[in-house]
Amino acid sequence: MDEDFIDAVASAIADHLWASNALPPNGPQAVRSASQPAISDGRNSDMDIDELSEVEIEALAEQIVTKLSPVGSYEDIPAEKIEI
């Protein structure tokens, strides 16, 4: 899988996530829908998500989700005591 393509799709997913303040959705369906803007923007001219097999999309999804996955939990941001 070419890195530029992964970056383009990851960027499209990040745009989507930014709008919804959410973390990366899992699964090939999310990749398939989120990749469309990246492809139509011409950020990837030599690959089309629709030409990929389900197996390839699964692999792509896994790579992107790994790339964008959250680190840690809310407790990793230390609590500070404060008066108001």
């Binding site: 745009d15 790339k67 939990s73 941001i77």
Partner: peptide, 15 residues
């Protein structure tokens, strides 16, 4: 909130 994934922030903030 949890600590940000630096890669995600870089991707988001670029655009």
């Amino acid at each position: 909130f949890c600590p940000a994934n630096r890669q995600l922030r870089d991707i988001v903030e670029k655009d």
